[in-house]
């Protein structure tokens, strides 16, 4: 399954790259009169396969051997480069996922338990407004405020010499956490699931025996929906990360992808695609594991 998914994803991205205008040779040779003849000569010199499918197959063949090729722009091996920066992206996305949940979960839980009281109603509207804010705009506003109000230049790259500071770490996390556009959906989904479970008969039984309804609704009303949300929102977060990393010069996969796209750095783009697909896949794998663990049909001895 996972292998098929990766195959499909890489193939689609490959086709998109192939059909999109521009090519790495022009980007590479842009200083030296990039005529067709020069570019063709470069291709021949690097022994690039001529047709698109032979290109893809040779890439695939190398991948299977664990060779993702080298970046056209920097010449560094793709795999180790992508893995190096993907750690930063994982920090960013995990941090902002936690940020989103820290905001969304209390609102969802309160409104599931107490109904839409004026306060809960206000918070719910607030999440809808927040979800509608474009993340790049939000990012620039935050940078603007930070420079003009606090006199700090909040870009991750500017701090790299002194190591990470909390400030440089938190700003992009907050921006992506608020601006990824999923908060309202998380609130709505979690509230609906919790309300549904609170109305289940076994919760009435729990109340009737004096037990905690939180304890009894935890698995179906919280754990399952939360893992489902996390798994399904990872792609959105990775998408948002591309923008946020760019805005904050965050040395992550998204920023690398952005640059790779500008340089038509095909091997790098393909490498990032594969790693991103693996991250998304791991999200759904985690969801499956949780589902199997709490499955009511499985009796544990």
């Amino acid at each position: 399954m996972a292998a098929l998914l990766l195959l499909g994803v890489s193939f689609v991205v490959f086709i998109i790259l192939f059909l999109s205008p521009g090519n790495p040779f022009n980007a590479l040779l842009k200083e030296q009169a990039a005529t067709g003849a020069v570019s063709d000569a470069a291709k021949r010199g690097l022994s690039v396969p001529s047709s698109w499918y032979t290109q893809y197959l040779s890439w695939l063949g190398n991948i299977l051997k664990g060779d993702f090729g080298n970046s056209i722009q920097t010449g560094l091996p793709v795999l180790s480069e992508v893995i190096r920066v993907s750690i930063n992206t994982v920090y960013l996305t995990a941090g902002s996922m936690i940020m989103t949940l820290v905001l969304a979960v209390p609102i969802a839980v309160l409104s599931a338990r107490r109904g839409l009281t004026p306060t809960n109603w206000f918070f719910t509207i607030f999440t809808y407004v927040v979800s509608a804010i474009p993340v790049f705009w939000f990012g620039y506003i935050v940078i603007y405020i930070s420079i003009h109000q606090f006199g700090v230049f909040p870009l991750a790259s500017s701090s790299s010499s002194q190591g990470w500071s909390w400030f440089h770490f938190m700003l992009p996390v907050i921006v992506l956490g608020l601006g990824n556009g999923t908060i309202s959906e998380v609130v709505r989904y979690l509230r609906e699931e919790m309300s549904r479970v609170f109305a289940e008969e076994y919760i009435l039984t729990a109340r009737a025996k004096g037990a905690s309804i939180w304890k009894h609704s935890f698995k179906e009303g919280f754990l399952l929906p939360i893992t489902e949300i996390i798994a399904s929102k990872i792609p959105f977060l990775l998408g948002g990360a591309v923008v946020v990393e760019q805005v904050f010069s965050w040395p992550g996969m998204g920023r690398m992808a952005w640059q790779a796209a500008q340089y038509r750095d095909y091997p790098l783009i393909m490498g990032i695609t594969v790693v991103a697909a693996i991250i998304v896949r791991m999200g759904s794998l985690m969801q499956r594991v949780v589902q199997i663990m709490v499955n009511p049909r499985a009796s544990r001895e």
Binding site: E201, L204, P296
Partner: peptide, 11 residues
């Protein structure tokens, strides 16, 4: 309660 299968916590 009336519906025993729904009244016990399935998890």
């Amino acid at each position: 309660f009336q519906n025993p299968k729904l009244s016990m916590n399935p998890f």
